[in-house]
Every structure is written in structure tokens, then in C-alpha cells.
Nucleic acid binder design. Structure first.
Length: 336
DNA sequence: TAGGCCATCTGGTCCT
DNA sequence: AGGACCAGATGGCCTA
């Protein structure tokens, strides 16, 4: 399905993700503490037995093992108390070790999730998608790309975004939308200010890197620059380019700081969640509204989705009057 | 303050 | 026996 070559070893061999938060530092401390505790317990329980009492315990333990071998169920009779003590200690040791392993396993799982976050079309180091939303978005992304391969044709912009956001929570839908838009801005800014004449199709910023000759290699999972390499993901570049020159006041911030997901009117411009797929005729209007507003938000990202549906978009007439031309241009760009 | 998200602990189960 | 995996319980943190 997904033909993008993906070398898991690249992911797996990358250095452990630097844990930035104090809580994680505390966690690391706790891990070390517990591990040292476990080692102490292990060494105490298995190796360091120099006192006569401990040697006695060891002997009794060995005897008990022999007795268990012979009589199976006599462990609690006779010298059961000391045995229980030793066994309880061993059980504690195993429990501590198992806890450490479980922590490590969950950290591995989280690292894998972090890697997954980096390859879905919405990535921020500072505001991560939740685990469940990451999985949902990844599933949608895979599905959408599979559909592209199956159909052999690039879908309509909004159809693609709808696919991405299907089943996501409203905040995540907002986040993805905002992320795409902001990334588009970053992408445009990186084009040396030449926002109207891309040297490559905006599709290269939307679809996986293998669609772009310049990005023909899989994302480098092992570098610290993943956010930069993934930033170009955007489906809105083409739309934005139409407004860039006429909206000098709109300078979307880089998608780095804590991103407060734009509040979105559910019935409004970018209402994607749990709705039936819009037909292509509607897509245009939705796309225009969304992107126009995204570019025109007087307060930047946080306001880009807030206009109610019945409010008059200031450039509505402009859009309508140019709709056909722009649609043609968009089609030319997106269906290159 | 309630709810969401998360990390951790824990016991059970399965596999080697 | 021991490790991996899983799911439930619990408590902390954060945000609306």
C-alpha cells in the first residue's frame, strides 16, 4: 500500500529522544533509583551472601528447592517462614525488574509513536498529538495515500484533508488544519519570497516526499531536523499563494511555540469532522473559505477559523468574481 | 472542578 | 523460569 521506502532500522537506531520535561527527568531519576534498588536487591539476594545468617538462608533456600522438587507442595511447612521471606524478596526483585522492563517497553512504544508523529502531516515538537489521535491520523493518512495509489489520481484538496481528519477529535482537526496552513506558510517563506511562482508544484509540499524529486529520500528519522524536513507538508500552499501578495498583515507564526488550536466553528468553514464527503462542487467553496480565512485572520492562526458561517468574508466578492479563474489555476496546480 | 491524557505499577497470560 | 505483552487501576498534570 504505502510504497514509501521505510527503513525501520533508521528509526530504531536513532538516539533516544531527548526528554525535555522535568517530569521526564524525574522519571529518569526514578528509573535509575529503582534500577539501582533492583540491582541491590539482586546482588543481595543472589550474590552477596557472606554473613553466616545469609549463608544459612541460602542453604535453606536450596534445601527448600530440593524439597519442592521432591514434595511439590510442602513449601509452607516446616521452615516456611524464612523461605517465604527469601521468596518474597525474590518476588520483589522480579517485580522491580519487571517494572523497569515495562517502563522501557512503554518508552520504546512512545518513541515509536514520536516517530510516527514525525511522519504524519502534522508535527510539532512542542504540541504533540495525543497517542490515539496520532494513530487515527496515521491511519487516515495511510488510507488517503492508498486511495491515491489505487485511483492513480491526485484528489481534490478538501477531499484529501477530509480523509486526513476523518474521525479525529475537533481539537485535533483544528490542529491539523492549522498545522497544514502554518507549514504552508513556512514553505512559502522558504521559497525566497517568491510565493507566486513556485519552482515546484505545491503538491510536493503536500504529498509524501517521493512525489518530489528534491525530497526523493525518505524523511531522515535520525536527525534532529525532522521538524524542518517535515514542515513542508501542506495542502494549502496553492490557495495561500493567491492571497500572499494581498495580505501583508497576515504573517502566520512559525509552528514552533505552543500552538493553541484555532477555535473552529463546527458548522463553519473547515467543518470536516464526521461529515459526509463533500461533493466536488462544494469543495471549491469550502476550500476558498478556509484558505482565504486562514490567510486573512486578523489575529493570525488563533482567529483563522472563528468567523461564523453567516459572516461576510471581506473578500467574498473578490473570490466569487474570480472563482472560475482561480479554480482553473488551482486545478492546474494541484492536478498538474 | 471535571475530564482528558499520560506514566507507572501490577497481576495475568502466553511464549521461548 | 523468565521475558514480552496486555489490560486494569491509580495518581499526577493540564486545560476548559
Amino acid at each position: 500500500m504505502l510504497t514509501l521506502p521505510f527503513d525501520e532500522s533508521i528509526v530504531m537506531t536513532e538516539p533516544p529522544i531527548c526528554r525535555k520535561f522535568s517530569r521526564e527527568n524525574e522519571e529518569a531519576k526514578q528509573v535509575k533509583k529503582l534500577e539501582s534498588c533492583a540491582k541491590q536487591l539482586v546482588s543481595h539476594g543472589k550474590h552477596i551472601r557472606k554473613t553466616p545468617e545469609e549463608e544459612t538462608e541460602q542453604e535453606e533456600e536450596d534445601e527448600d528447592r530440593e524439597e519442592e522438587d521432591e514434595n511439590g507442595c510442602q513449601e509452607d511447612e516446616g521452615q516456611g517462614k524464612k523461605m517465604t521471606k527469601v521468596r518474597q524478596e525474590r518476588i520483589k526483585i522480579r517485580r522491580v525488574e519487571a517494572n523497569a522492563r515495562e517502563r522501557g517497553r512503554m518508552h520504546g512504544l512512545n518513541d515509536a509513536l514520536d516517530n510516527l508523529r514525525k511522519v504524519v502531516p502534522c508535527y510539532s515538537k512542542t504540541q504533540k498529538l495525543s497517542k490515539i489521535e496520532t494513530l487515527r491520523l496515521a491511519k487516515n493518512y495511510i488510507w488517503a495515500l492508498s486511495e491515491i495509489l489505487r485511483i492513480g489520481k491526485r484528489p481534490d484538496l478538501l477531499t484529501f484533508v477530509q480523509s486526513l481528519c476523518k474521525g479525529l477529535s475537533q481539537p485535533t482537526t483544528n490542529l491539523v488544519a492549522g498545522c497544514l496552513q502554518l507549514n504552508a506558510r513556512s514553505f512559502l517563506m522558504s521559497q525566497s519570497g517568491d510565493t507566486l511562482h513556485h519552482t515546484r508544484s505545491p503538491y510536493t509540499s503536500v504529498y509524501p516526499p517521493y512525489h518530489s524529486p528534491e525530497l526523493s529520500t525518505p524523511p531522515s528519522h535520525g536527525t534532529l531536523d525532522n521538524s524542518k524536513t517535515m514542515k513542508p507538508y501542506s495542502y494549502c500552499s496553492a490557495y495561500e499563494s493567491f492571497y500572499e501578495s494581498t495580505s501583508p498583515e497576515c504573517t502566520s507564526p512559525q509552528f514552533e511555540g505552543p500552538l493553541s488550536p484555532p477555535s473552529m466553528n463546527y458548522n463553519g468553514i473547515f467543518s470536516l469532522k464526521q461529515e459526509e464527503a463533500l461533493d466536488y462542487g462544494k469543495n471549491y467553496n469550502y476550500g476558498m473559505h478556509y484558505c482565504a480565512m486562514a490567510g486573512r485572520g486578523p489575529l493570525g492562526q488563533s482567529s483563522m477559523f472563528r468567523l461564523p458561517t453567516d459572516s461576510h468574508f471581506p473578500y467574498d466578492f473578490h473570490l466569487r468574481s474570480q472563482s472560475l479563474t482561480m479554480q482553473d489555476e488551482l486545478n492546474a496546480v494541484f492536478h498538474n
